[in-house]
Write a protein that binds this DNA or RNA. Structure first.
Length: 567
RNA sequence: GCGUCCGUAGCUCAACUGGAUAGAGCGUCGGCCUCCGGAGCCGAAGGUUGUGGGUUCGAGCCCCGCCGGACGCACCA
């Protein structure tokens, strides 16, 4: 089913044609900000008026004279400098919301041309615990994957683990000399971090130990059996630990191909770059220059003969292109890596790949002191502890607000609310802004938070528990009162909002929409009794409640957030 | 120094990609419970969108210059 804006767009295009105007681009037509300007508006007459040098208001009048809104609402009006304002009739609203209610996809059409999109996100490093810095990448990547899939794209999620690098020299050194087996069994991650830190500190003081670490690294890279085995153990232990976080967050990956997966390809990549004249020797290293971007080189082979992540990233793109036939690759990685990706993308273009590459950057998470979030001792905050604290805090709030819940219900709800709060605090914000992490704000039951939305869902669902039989959508819908109309108008925007998320990779526009939707619902809920209304009104209102709940559930699910039945 | 990003109510954030009188929440003040979950709703106060120019019918958004901040700039990822 077409969306309301699509229907109006079509009418507008017909009218433009009738007055002899061609537009190469689709003209803006969107819901109004202010109800006094109607329900939808377009600036087509002002945009086109400039092009054809006609007074915008007279052009607007000509367009309106040729614009049929039959079946949709009253004739549109010209206002201000040349806006064309549309109003939607209650009958049309009723018809549309009824249609939407009967649609499993809630009015969201799959895209006409599905693409194969690889989404690269989360990417923690082996032998280091995940920390707050991984939250945004993980949440954003997962949400974008869900949205793209819902829209019908072929999505491949890939966790590009940092499982290869110079830190393994120290880890292996520490494993051989400092390892405590008992701690490794009880808390493997902590033990891996400890041996790394101690080896690192020792290497700092003693050049001989540093040399020893380097030799361990070289042995690993050369395929030494024992070092290889230790490395594999570290990878396995770390992945098991990461999985606990991902399970708690409800995040899944199609693949977890770490950097090591591409090791064998690296010499060939550099050779290819040299053969094609893209890479050259510089200060002992092999580098690619792009002076338009930066005076710093893209180093594809280090002067010691080793390879860094630049080379791995090129190999990864080639793999994704050849093996998965990717049309697009989205990297959900923090803003500081901007230059790296510009260089990588530029090189990829020069290599001739027909790929849509996107660096989906995001800002940092700050502590209440407005500085990068750290623990009191100055460490980065472990993700696991953070998630568990969220669940704990949410469980306590739920227990206080609703003491009748069983312990089992309480902990299940606490998890949904706590994890939802963390995710929503992140995703409801514009991704580029640094945001201040605040337990009180994200767990607040007021304002634009997950608990507020989850509660709105719970309220809407609680009505249905009072029904004798399962709810069945009525055969007709009749809208009358203002709150019903306002809620319906907001509901009908959903099919336009979801595709818009991918325009700028901004899940926050969905979050904002859901919040406005919930606010409209509460207004409706306050002033329009449902169960005690006369039969026709009652059926209509039940349908609105049902659609609202499904929209909220679907919308939050696209953000990777669950809803409880009670809370 | 060069580059990227950011600067909006006291605080935390929006603003549908250039549209009409810049919106929410918290906090402050004032209203609303014989009624489906008040974890709610309605209202008031609060702004020269860091700053000075420019582009045009129209700028928080685009261009240029300042001020202030975060981050990145050769072999870590």
């Amino acid at each position: 089913m077409a969306t309301v804006t699509q229907i109006l767009q079509e009418r507008l295009q017909n009218a433009l044609q009738a007055v002899g105007i061609k537009s190469d681009e689709p003209l803006q037509l969107a819901p109004t900000m202010d109800p006094r300007h109607g329900d939808y508006q377009t600036n087509a007459a002002m945009v086109m008026g400039k092009k054809v040098k006609e007074n915008p208001r007279t052009l607007a009048s000509r367009i309106v004279a040729n614009l049929s809104t039959k079946g949709i609402g009253p004739p549109p009006e010209v206002a201000g400098p040349g806006f064309i304002n549309f109003r939607i009739s209650p009958e049309f609203l009723a018809h549309r919301v009824h249609e939407l209610a009967l649609d499993k996809r809630l009015g969201v059409e799959p895209v006409a041309a599905p693409k194969t999109i690889v989404i690269d996100f989360s990417s923690p490093n082996i032998a280091k615990p995940m920390h707050v810095g991984h939250i945004r990448s993980t949440n954003l990547g997962d949400a974008l994957a869900r949205v793209a899939r819902f829209l019908g794209h072929q999505v491949i999620t890939d966790n590009h683990l940092g499982d290869w690098g110079t830190q393994f020299g120290k880890v292996i050194y520490g494993w051989k000399r400092l390892l405590n087996r008992a701690t490794l069994d009880s808390d493997p991650m902590e033990e891996l971090v400890r041996i790394y830190r101690e080896a690192d500190a020792a290497a700092e003081k003693d050049p001989e130990i540093l040399g020893e670490c380097r030799r361990e690294l070289v042995k690993l890279q050369e395929g030494d059996i024992e070092n290889r085995r230790i490395w594999q153990r570290c990878v396995d232990l770390s992945k098991a630990e990461f999985s606990k976080n991902y399970d708690l967050l409800g995040v899944r990956f199609d693949f977890q191909l770490g950097e090591s997966f591409y090791n064998a390809e690296l010499p060939g990549v550099v050779q290819e770059l040299q053969d094609r004249g893209l890479a050259e020797a510089s200060e002992g290293a092999i580098v690619v220059w792009d002076h338009e971007l930066s005076d710093d080189p893209f180093i594809v082979r280090k002067s010691d003969g080793g390879f860094g992540y630049a080379t791995t990233d090129v190999a990864t793109i080639e793999y994704r292109y050849r093996q998965w036939h990717a049309d697009a690759v989205w990297y959900v990685v923090g803003a500081p890596q901007n230059l790296h990706f510009q260089q990588l993308f530029s090189l990829t273009r020069r290599l001739g790949y027909d790929l849509d590459l996107q660096h989906i950057a995001f800002g940092s998470i700050l502590g209440e002191d407005r500085k990068l979030m750290r623990t009191r001792s100055g460490e980065s905050v472990p993700l696991r502890a953070l998630l568990e604290e969220a669940v704990g805090r949410a469980t306590a709030i739920v227990a206080e607000k609703n003491p009748e819940l069983s312990e089992r219900e309480r902990s299940a709800i606490g998890r949904i609310v706590g994890i939802g709060a963390i995710k929503y605090a992140d995703l409801s914000q514009h991704r580029m802004t640094d945001y201040v992490f605040s337990w009180d704000k994200m767990l607040s039951l007021q304002g634009n938070t997950a608990p507020y939305l989850q509660n709105a869902y719970v309220r809407s669902r609680s009505i249905f528990r009072k029904l004798d039989a399962a709810f069945v959508a009525p055969s007709s819908v009749e809208l009358g009162e203002e709150p019903e109309l306002a809620l319906t108008k907001k509901i009908l925007q959903f099919p336009d909002v979801v595709p818009a998320i991918l325009d700028g990779f901004k899940p926050n526009i969905l979050a904002n929409y859901l919040y406005e939707l919930a606010a409209q619902f509460h207004g409706f809920y306050e002033s329009c009794p449902v169960l005690s209304a006369e039969p026709v009104k009652r059926e209509t209102r039940l349908l609105l409640c049902d659609v609202f709940a499904r929209l909220l559930q679907t919308g939050l699910d696209l953000l990777g957030i669950q809803v409880p039945d009670k809370m």
